[in-house]
Design a protein around this nucleic acid. Sequence first.
DNA 1: ACTAAACGGTAATATCTATTACTATTTATT
DNA 2: AATAAATAGTAATAGATATTACCGTTTAGT
Lengths: 216, 216
Amino acid sequence: MVKCGRPAKGNELLSRDRLLDSALTLFLEHGYGNLNMETIARDARVSLRTIYSQFGGKAGLFGALIQRCSDQFVTGLSEKETPEQTLTGFAQSYLTRITQPDAVRIRAILIAESPHFPDLATGFYQQSAQRTLKYLAQFFATQQQKGHFIELEPRFLAEQFISALRGERLQQLQLGLAATPDEEEIKVWAQQATQLFLYGCITLRQANTAQQTNLK
Amino acid sequence: MVKCGRPAKGNELLSRDRLLDSALTLFLEHGYGNLNMETIARDARVSLRTIYSQFGGKAGLFGALIQRCSDQFVTGLSEKETPEQTLTGFAQSYLTRITQPDAVRIRAILIAESPHFPDLATGFYQQSAQRTLKYLAQFFATQQQKGHFIELEPRFLAEQFISALRGERLQQLQLGLAATPDEEEIKVWAQQATQLFLYGCITLRQANTAQQTNLK
DNA sequence: ACTAAACGGTAATATCTATTACTATTTATT
DNA sequence: AATAAATAGTAATAGATATTACCGTTTAGT
């Protein structure tokens, strides 16, 4: 017989967190359709009834999970000396996050289930990608005012920069065809992608300088 | 009672094609896990036994489907007057193909099932993406010899160009958050992405010219 | 102390579905 | 004509699983 009964005061959220942790791990491992509730309950040392009373069912549990980890995908910028350094720094943080196996997996699962959970997909995207894009766009807008970047929609620049960062490697990661890059690989990756992108949107004078000094 | 029995000579492949067509449509609509064999059999006016004797099972049927449609994702280049025109033309063809709802969906399903069908994912990627990237890399290599592009790995340039083309919009499409673009949208999309990319890898003299003439 | 709330554990329910079996039918092959 | 091959249609098999029900236990609130 294991300890059971109404939880002591203060511990009310303990089992809830433990449940969410277990469920996240298991969903990442098995995906949505191939994971059964009993496995979750056993792993979290929680009764099936508790899951249903707290989350309403499998879908509710999955939704709560996605919402809880949406924030982890937001990446901000920290200003450095030059725009290039700022963007390269951002690129490294961003790539480090989204190439994590768990991050790749959660995206894949969400893509797979998005037809069944359209609201969840929307919420996740707004909480993660949209916010990151907003920070980037603000940065580009500011730099444009300083005359450092050509006059294109800041939002467009932000989207294209993010897209340039992802690269083909992320597609391969998503299909399980490539290994998670280590820190050194990400560094090179971030730098090359950022440079290639920059010389397309930095103003001409600076572009010349950068091209002559940084590219061999 | 419906016609049955051994098929007449010449019609042997008829039911096989009809089966594959039905299965493709249904897989696209329901995904892999949410589609049952009975639905496929009814839709294709085929018995369950026929499916199992021809494809071995659900997995075999799915595999045959993916292989049959891999080729449709390969896009080649047709040389135009300038590199920019060539790449823009390619961009339009490429975007037109990969933004088709069916193409988006098949990719999403494959991503979702890639843990269960690693070989299928590998085969699909090699048949489609790898071949397209190869064409692009050859083009960049040729242009580099003519001195039109900076000296970076042609393969890297090809990957970054493809990635730039996809843009954030494709992510949104994959999550079901955006509508399929029409021809006009794709035209703008292709042009903007190509230009932004080009001024990062085209040689300086040409970059200057293009920037002055094509960018407002 | 007493009641209600929240829990764990087991089992039952109800449904869904991949796969196989079986029978009757049509055509190819000899 | 006789046999084998390939099919359609129906039903059976076997297994999985989301959800609910029930029972005993522990703690909060009064």
